[in-house]
Write a protein that binds this DNA or RNA. Structure first.
Lengths: 168, 168
DNA sequence: ATTATTTACTTAGCCTGCTAACTAAGTATA
DNA sequence: TATACTTAGTTAGCAGGCTAAGTAAATAAT
């Protein structure tokens, strides 16, 4: 009788594990989408979507005149993915792309005065969004959270690198 | 002299805050993409991509014969997003869609025997991937991590709901 | 010096999230 | 009963990740 019960418990435990299995990846995706949506809602009045304001912001932090490649690396996305976004920002007149004298392959991205204007307007809103989304989370909890993100990211990167090695 | 120094420190602090501002959203996106990529690499041999195996898995957990709407809700994606995935799974012969007698609007999704086969093969691989990605993270840290994800998600959902209210 | 490799950029096209707009079926109300 | 609203499914098209494949410039190797 007891063994049957413990067997049942063990089966339930397995089921729970399976459910949790998915939930982390799912919740991660959901959180990412939610965060983007919230930021989008807040910033669309400025004509900015998540990838666009992220690029603008990073560009400012990188000190403006950097190559597209450097910007893509800083944003941790592929250069090809950045192209579309930069094209849109250029159309909106927020950035400019110039040829580089030193390296004729490269194109240097810089903020226009309109771009700087928009960045100023963005700043307050982004900080506000972040504050609202992180409400009720202490600094300690937050840094712990970020630590775990880094840990999992490192595991994933390492695993991908290994796979690539195996194939090559 | 001292006041100038403390002013400088305060400015640096602000800069740091601004940098951290972005990093969380960015790292979240990066982690999500990485996780998906790793899972994809592991499961493509079975002809499965992330959305596909997630849908299969959830379908099994929901007890098979559910409507597309129920499945979409469980996956926390829009029904329209699920349509394409279910179409692909149907093409692969892993699921079937039947009309529902009780509600002629609804279509019931069920796993085929081929679908169940694939699920069996999936199981070990997914658990392995999860184990590798979560290597070096204790159960306590993990549950804390998930708690923070939920907290931020709740904040984001609440904020979005508020925005919708304001507009309506 | 010439050739081979690497690097930055670009284009094209896939994937899967989304919203918008439509149909058909069920439900509620006048 | 007839009309209005809601809900499930569907299609179409956008957004922004990605890889693949090509060009031109820079660098390394012979």
């Amino acid at each position: 009788m007891l063994s049957l019960l413990s067997k049942l418990v063990s089966i339930m435990q397995q089921e729970l594990d399976r459910l949790k299995e998915l939930s982390l990846a799912e919740h991660l995706g959901r959180l990412h989408r939610l965060w983007r949506t919230v930021a989008d809602v807040e910033l669309t009045p400025l004509g900015l979507t998540h990838p666009r304001w992220t690029a603008l912001w990073k560009l400012l932090r990188l000190g403006d005149n950097v190559s597209q490649k450097v910007l893509a690396d800083a944003l941790e996305i592929e250069l090809a993915s950045l192209m579309r976004t930069l094209g849109q920002l250029e159309e909106q007149g927020l950035v400019e792309r110039h040829c580089c004298d030193k390296d004729k392959r490269a194109r240097i991205v810089s903020l226009t005065s309109a771009g700087l204007d928009v960045l100023k307007q963005m700043e307050a809103r982004i900080i506000q969004v972040r504050r609202e989304l992180l409400a009720g989370i202490s600094a300690t909890e937050l840094s712990e959270f970020e630590r775990i993100i880094s840990l999992i990211s490192d595991n994933a990167s390492a695993k991908l690198a290994k796979v690539t090695d195996t194939i090559l």
